[in-house]
């Protein structure tokens, strides 16, 4: 599968990373190679195979609906670059 630099720019934008035109061309080529490699799988007839969503064979384990308070608010806020003791503070969104 071919990835052109425009596709690459869109993917970079969705991932919030900035790439120079040189890098866009470079990664478009590399990502294209990866996808071409994956294309080999398309040769396999999977019409009768159920999609596998997880490589592990067991299924969901649930937990009881019981409140657990793990950390104090200050501990949670401490992981952010900026806070005011109550809220996380981020660059203005709108």
């Amino acid at each position: 599968m071919k990835i052109n630099p425009d596709d690459m720019a869109r993917i970079a934008n969705l991932a919030r990373i900035e790439l120079s035109p040189e890098k866009l061309a470079l990664f478009a080529g590399q990502l294209g190679d990866v996808l071409t490699y994956m294309d080999a799988l398309n040769a396999v007839d999977t019409a009768d195979v159920r999609p596998m969503y997880s490589p592990v064979s067991h299924h969901t384990v649930t937990r009881p609906d019981t409140v657990v308070k793990e950390l104090a608010r200050a501990d949670i806020l401490a992981g952010a670059p900026e806070d005011d003791g109550a809220f996380f503070i981020v660059p203005r969104i709108v």
Partner: peptide, 26 residues
């Protein structure tokens, strides 16, 4: 429910901001 869908944090409405937060939901 009393707790969030994937962690044991309380779902109580009207608590102080970021009081019901743990590493999973953060």
């Amino acid at each position: 429910t009393r707790t969030k869908v994937f962690c044991g944090c309380s779902t109580a409405f009207g608590n102080e901001p970021n009081e019901n937060v743990c590493p999973v939901c953060a």
